[in-house]
Nucleic acid binder design. Sequence first.
DNA 1: CGATTCTTTGAAAACAGTCAATCTGTGTGG
DNA 2: CCACACAGATTGACTGTTTTCAAAGAATCG
Lengths: 192, 192
Amino acid sequence: MFDSFKRYISNKAKLTNQELDKIQSLSIEKKFRKKQYLLQAGDICKHHTFIVKGCMRLYRISNKGVEHVIRFAIEEWWMGDKESLNTGQPSRSNIDALEDSEVLMWTKENHQILLDEIPAFNVFSERVQARSLASSYNRIYTTISLSAEEKYHDFIQTYPNIFNRVPLHMIASYLGVSRETLSRIRNQFTSK
Amino acid sequence: MFDSFKRYISNKAKLTNQELDKIQSLSIEKKFRKKQYLLQAGDICKHHTFIVKGCMRLYRISNKGVEHVIRFAIEEWWMGDKESLNTGQPSRSNIDALEDSEVLMWTKENHQILLDEIPAFNVFSERVQARSLASSYNRIYTTISLSAEEKYHDFIQTYPNIFNRVPLHMIASYLGVSRETLSRIRNQFTSK
DNA sequence: CGATTCTTTGAAAACAGTCAATCTGTGTGG
DNA sequence: CCACACAGATTGACTGTTTTCAAAGAATCG
């Protein structure tokens, strides 16, 4: 399982074998079955998680009891609640597996050790974080500027590998649109 | 002008006088008049900017020619297009001053020097970045989960110091709602 | 096969956007 | 100091989009 990660990170950061060994030695391999929670609201998020295989979602539940997907993640993406991880406060979000998944995890403390001891890993991590901030701004922009139909098309263009793996009602939730509306949008589109 | 920054950062990071001097020596003091651009779409963002006084907004213009505010920033907030700063690519966003403003700026390179040479500054910066990621997730959540009216109330609760300083139509733009709708929501509310 | 889970459809109601006109306050130049 | 222009806010009428509710139809999984 670590080999996948090795291949991934070797493209992004120049690491010696020793450094890779160190990263591996602090990692935890885990499997999650479909529907299994990686994090529940109220829990304190303790790990940085890298998805080797599978698909997950991070979502919150509103006070009306409705689920709202904040983001999806698939192979070679990072997952976790950065806020809870950072503050040590209970998370407001849930994370669960949408498919049987394999992940690598590092505790906050061990992750910090890697950041401190391996400069290239630090640079790499900052780049990951910068990119996730950029993509969240893009998401904000599309969410406030596009119509439901445009959002849907933007989504399948931006995440072609996700839209065909997750149920439509979750995409609707992600886009902030009712599932009925999204179903109609999609059918109206295919009939053209 | 640097004194304000000194007071701000001294609360958040333990820095020696030498370190503060170093930070100051690499800083640029600038003033922006109301309506003046700090960054225009197409420019490459070269600086990290700290707002000492005033109010700014970061926004994009859609292909229909409509402005969409991605975020506001006031005293003691950081501003800049992290994406462009990081990638060196032209920015898709604009930043301008909503009030006469005073800022401190550091070039990307000088900022990096500070991160490398001053561990406490590095830790501090990471915390800032983590917080901005967290707040952007919160924004995504409220944007997809709340109605226009709820969004407005959430906004004035979350940013009481901003809503009374910026024009209503910009708040509408920020919330992804037409200004007429927001105007109606607000009046309906005050008449209760 | 039976039970979930997911998607689709219809009809009504709620909601938000658009267009156009008016109103308000602010600041600028003569 | 006034008149004017301008940016911003409001209002009404209308249109269009999206939600909601309810029911039924696929698809998937054990």
